[in-house]
């Protein structure tokens, strides 16, 4: 049954490469304005889900429904979605400003207002002073902001993130986590975020989808994952690993206070 709040509904999605089953009967929904993290180890199929959602891959079978419309085979640019890749895929020969503006200039819908949109986004993303810099002269965090701004420029309902913070240092990650949540509150976008980092998923998400080997183990709120893990895998991969991290942290903090 489709909840009226659901912006996205994934039904019985199967995907294989040659003989290997990558995704096995994937079903889930995403609510409007929700921040959903897809959490799992490398090779579990989480990036494949993202590429299917955006339309860069097509499933063997199953349906992707957005706002009640079947978009399984719709062209990626017509899905109302944007994506931020792990390596950002910025246009190296263009400045930050031009990176954000380029797609707008080619789109009759945005062309007339392109400069205004870019300037607004540059202010919003604290990038104004870096507008004329090329990607090679931007830090990792700044590059990511440009990539997000470029995605926001086309005004998507849903933004997908493919492990965008894995190459950043801890401090930048913490800053960007907050900025991302602030952005979501401002623009009311639905965000689907891929990560293999439990702590990151717990810090940012409204709900977390835990995956392994092409299957979903549990989709739930962070609290429920801890209090009611669906199976041993969730218990081990999520709860146990987080506990180990927390214990280690508390031990060090305790030591500091004792000193």
């Amino acid at each position: 049954m489709n909840d009226s709040q659901d912006i996205l509904e994934i039904k019985n999605l199967f995907y294989s490469v040659e003989q290997k089953q990558i995704l096995n009967d994937i079903n889930f929904t995403v609510q409007n304005g929700e921040f959903l993290s897809i959490l799992g180890p490398s090779g579990c199929g989480k990036t494949t889900i993202l590429r299917l959602l955006i339309g860069l891959l097509q499933p063997d079978s199953g349906q992707i429904i957005k706002n009640g419309q079947d978009i399984t085979f719709t062209h990626p640019s017509k899905r109302g979605m944007g994506i931020v890749f792990q390596n950002y895929a910025l246009f190296e020969n263009m400045t930050a400003f031009e990176n954000i503006e380029y797609a707008l200039k080619l789109n009759p819908k945005f062309k007339a207002r392109s400069k205004d949109i870019v300037n607004e986004l540059l202010i919003q993303m604290n990038l104004m002073e870096h507008a004329d810099k090329k990607p090679v002269n931007l830090s990792g965090g700044q590059q990511q902001r440009v990539a997000i701004a470029r995605t926001l420029a086309i005004n998507p309902d849903i933004i997908l993130f493919d492990e965008p913070m894995s190459a950043l240092d801890v401090e930048t990650r913490l800053v960007l986590r907050k900025e991302l949540k602030d952005l979501q509150h401002k623009y009311k976008n639905t965000m689907i975020y891929i990560t293999h980092d439990q702590e990151e998923a717990f810090a940012m998400s409204d709900r977390i989808m835990v995956m392994s080997e092409g299957k979903i183990h549990q989709i739930d709120t962070p609290e429920n994952l801890i209090t009611h893990p669906a199976d041993d895998y969730v218990k081990q991969f999520v709860v146990h690993n987080l506990r180990v991290k927390m214990d280690s942290l508390l031990k060090h903090l305790g030591g500091m206070y004792e000193k």
Partner: peptide, 15 residues
């Protein structure tokens, strides 16, 4: 050259 450029182009509607 970045492998995702064509993907980004497709998503942003760049031919």
């Amino acid at each position: 050259v970045n492998r995702n450029l064509e993907d980004i182009g497709m998503i942003l509607g760049i031919s």
